[in-house]
Simulated scan of single mutants.
Amino acid sequence: MLKNDPVALIREKALWMRRTAFTMVHRARAGHPGGDFSATDIMATLYFGVMKYDAKRPDWADRDRFIMSKGHATGALYSALAAAGYFPEDWLPTYMQPRSLLNGHPNRNYLPGIETNTGPLGHGFPVAVGIAIAGQLTGASYRTYVLTGDGEQQEGSNWEAAMLSGHRKLVNLTLIIDRNRLQQGTGTEETSGLDPLDEKYRAFGWEVVEVDGHDPAALLAVLGAAPGDKPRCVIANTVKGKGVSFMENVASWHHGVPNDDQYAQAMKELV
């Protein structure tokens, strides 16, 4: 039974999310499917194996907070929120349509389950730090999770956030870096090298764990672990476009849009 097998449930949800997100992008003729697919297994693990929330009470004070700092990956975010019950699945076909509540970047004024507006890279992580500080000051039980892209790590605001988090020992904060090593146009190390990313976060006072970002069992173990004595940085090694042969590790699928033949092929592979 899926309800007794969290890994099987996460895999089922992740498959549905990939198929749904790609359909949204195909219909809208816009989106960021490569980054959606590298983040999907992480998102499915958080929403269906780790975080505490009540989709019927999105403002529940004790909910865990999730911030999608890589705000262009709305295909992954909206499909996760719909699957979790925050809004009806029949809203998804309106993605990026005129007057749709499902913008290209998430807007907390439009949809339940979104903690803050994101899109300009480097904004979500600092907001998550503020939320974690609020929880620390009030003694709240919630945990804060934030997902950034790896290219996003090139933004200076992230390093201010990292420094402050380490200084304040925000043990209620988990940063997840979607480390697919590609950003718009080319590789991260060709644009502005990030390695050794793990050593940099350790130098700022973080616990750092590397994990296969497409292995639900490994993700569950890391993301669901009890807090230690430092904020936790999870470097999730992923594949851009994971799950579709012609998209995997291809930079142009950062914001590529499938034609009808590509869409049909992807649907055959996503089973």
Rank of each mutant, 00 (worst) to 15 (best):
P98D: 08
P58G: 09
D90M: 06
Q136P: 04
Y145M: 02
P93W: 08
S69L: 11
F66V: 04
S69F: 00
D59F: 07
G122S: 15
N107F: 02
A132W: 00
A132M: 04
H123V: 13
T118L: 10
P126D: 07
Y95A: 07
Y145H: 04
L121H: 04
E115C: 06
K70T: 00
H123W: 08
F66S: 05
V129Y: 12
R99C: 09
A84Y: 10
P120L: 00
A76K: 08
P120G: 13
Y142V: 14
Y95E: 01
W91H: 11
A61Q: 08
S141F: 07
L101D: 11
S69C: 07
T74W: 10
L102Y: 04
Y110V: 09
N103F: 07
R63G: 04
M96S: 13
Y86M: 02
M96R: 11
Y86K: 10
G104S: 06
A73M: 13
S79W: 09
D90L: 01
R65F: 00
I131H: 07
S141Y: 14
A82S: 03
R65H: 15
A82M: 01
P98H: 13
N117Q: 03
A73K: 06
R63K: 07
T138E: 12
P112C: 10
L121V: 15
S69Y: 03
N117A: 14
P88I: 11
D90C: 01
P88A: 09
S141L: 04
N107P: 15
G71V: 01
A76C: 13
G130V: 08
D90A: 06
R63V: 06
G122N: 04
A76N: 14
G135M: 01
L77D: 03
D59M: 12
L102W: 00
P126Q: 04
A82F: 10
G75S: 08
G122C: 00
N117C: 15
L77W: 07
F87Q: 01
N107D: 15
T74D: 03
N109K: 12
L92T: 05
T144W: 00
H105M: 08
P126C: 12
A73H: 03
G104F: 02
H72D: 06
T138M: 09
A83C: 01
I131Q: 15
I131V: 10
E89G: 04
L111W: 15
G113S: 04
P120C: 11
E115N: 09
W60F: 05
K70A: 05
S79T: 10
N107M: 05
A61C: 07
V129N: 02
I133R: 06
D64F: 09
A80F: 11
D59N: 15
